[in-house]
């Protein structure tokens, strides 16, 4: 996978548009999973995914290859998602008369077809602070090494491990009713 990315990135950096499209196709599922789990809203996640790839296109020449391409993308996606959450936070302080209706911040439990346990899991993961949500998603679902998550988030490996443990503890507490 990273080998594929490596060759495609080199071509895309030289201006080959179809290589960039291939990069988008190869990485879309992983990035979508992250932004969806972070925001809990499908439409928002789709927008963020599109923004992530647009930013990647603009910044591609600055990618030096000292990290995995997917790690670099994860970082962009994470920043976009945090941007969105901050924006939501700020919007929540602006009077509704100025805003119209506010977007719901978390819509996963309403998704049709999700079992009770599924909803509980998604709600529990959704309630983690953004950074822990990212760390948990990348470690648990994407099985990335802590070192790579550290590169993506710009935090030390030990801070990542501490946050991961905190996330696990929170999930454990929230999901104990299902035991």
């Amino acid at each position: 996978m990273e080998q594929d990315n490596y060759e495609l990135v080199a071509k895309a950096q030289r201006g080959d548009r179809s290589s960039f499209d291939d990069l988008v196709r190869i990485n879309k599922d992983k990035m979508f999973a992250l932004v969806y789990r972070m925001t809990g809203n499908r439409d928002v996640a789709l927008d963020l995914l599109q923004e992530t790839f647009f930013t990647a296109f603009k910044e591609l020449k600055r990618f030096r290859g000292d990290a995995h391409f997917s790690s670099w993308l994860y970082r962009i996606a994470f920043n976009r998602a945090v941007n969105h959450l901050r924006r939501q936070k700020l919007l929540s302080f602006i009077p509704i008369s100025k805003m119209g209706k506010l977007e719901p911040s978390y819509d996963m439990p309403d998704n049709p077809g999700l079992g009770e346990l599924n909803s509980a899991i998604e709600k529990a993961v959704g309630s983690l602070p953004p950074k822990q949500k990212m760390i948990f998603t990348l470690r648990f679902y994407e099985q990335l090494p802590f070192k790579e998550i550290s590169m993506i988030s710009g935090k030390s490996e030990s801070a990542i491990k501490t946050n991961y443990q905190k996330a696990i503890e929170k999930l454990r507490k929230q999901l104990q009713d299902f035991r």
Binding site: D29, L49, Q50, I121, V125
Partner: peptide, 25 residues
């Protein structure tokens, strides 16, 4: 907990959604 969390579905992007994204992109 590990067992429970693995029951969670993986968010998947549909082909139609992806086509829309590609177009916008």
């Amino acid at each position: 907990l590990d067992k429970y969390l693995k029951c969670g579905t993986t968010p998947i992007i549909k082909e139609t959604e992806f086509a829309t994204i590609q177009k916008k992109l």
